[in-house]
Computed example of a mutant assay.
Amino acid sequence: MPERKTGGLDWAEARARLERMMETAAQAETLSPAKAREVLDARAQELARPPPAERTASHLVEVARFRLGGQMYALSTRFLHEVLRTPELTPLPGAPPLLRGLTLLRGEVLPVVELTPLFGRPVSGLGSAVLVVGLGRAELGLCAEAVEEVTQVPRDALLPAPTALAEVGDWVSSIHRDGTIFLEGEALLGDSRLVFDISDEGAA
């Protein structure tokens, strides 16, 4: 039967502490008064020490980590709809370099972009995967060489983005200690450089 937790009390931990206290009391009976007092004082300090705080869900952010052009990026999974493998892209004449082309997703046209030009680097032309992102619906595809993992990251492991990165856009929210650039999905989707008129009138 699993150990119960009631009102935040960890019964397994409480039982373990009581057992240690009883063991200490038994040991104290065989020690000299001075040594017994020393042992009991040490145990009392241990029992008074609060248990380590558990890391709660609010301290974690779930992200998809993906790689492009030698750089690792991360985006909250709440903006990620799916990952496409080697989708066929149709280039648009006269489109900005970051717009790699259009693809069809269940009958809907989806613009696919590469973020590297926004960081001052040339288009890599790489990317065997496309992350389909959006708010409530598929809005944009992000090129990636590989989607490495979906993982939970402690918020306290994130650092403010350096000025040079922050100037790229307000969607560069932070940077992980390992160098991963964290992207803020809502701001990314609202960046005018990543909004394209793909209607018949806009393409004319």
Rank of each mutant, 00 (worst) to 15 (best):
A12G: 13
V132H: 00
A203P: 06
S192G: 05
L9V: 11
V61P: 08
R100F: 05
P87R: 04
F182A: 14
L140W: 01
M22T: 03
D156M: 14
L118S: 01
K5W: 08
R49Q: 15
V113C: 08
G125I: 02
R17T: 13
P160V: 09
A57H: 04
R177V: 14
G69V: 04
L75S: 10
R106P: 11
V195Y: 04
A48P: 04
E13C: 06
D170H: 09
M1F: 03
P93N: 01
E88V: 11
T116H: 00
L126N: 12
L105A: 06
I181D: 01
E29S: 14
G190M: 09
L102M: 12
L92P: 00
L40I: 13
I198N: 07
S174Q: 10
E3T: 14
P97K: 02
A64S: 14
A157N: 11
E46K: 10
E13H: 11
V172N: 06
V112A: 00
E38Y: 12
T116P: 01
G127Q: 06
A42N: 14
E184M: 03
A44M: 08
V172E: 03
L40E: 11
Q27V: 09
E19K: 02
E184G: 12
S199V: 03
C143M: 12
W11E: 11
G8D: 05
V132E: 00
T180N: 03
L140C: 01
A203W: 12
A14P: 06
R43D: 12
G70K: 08
G94W: 04
I181V: 10
L105E: 01
V39M: 13
R85V: 15
S192T: 12
G125P: 03
D191N: 09
R37F: 07
G7V: 07
F66W: 13
R193E: 01
G179L: 02
M1R: 06
T86F: 05
L40T: 11
L80H: 14
T163R: 13
V133W: 00
S128W: 06
R100A: 09
I175T: 12
G70S: 13
A14L: 14
Y73A: 02
F79M: 10
G134S: 07
A42E: 14
C143A: 09
L68C: 07
P111S: 05
R177K: 10
A144K: 15
D41M: 14
A129F: 15
T116Q: 03
L92R: 01
T163V: 13
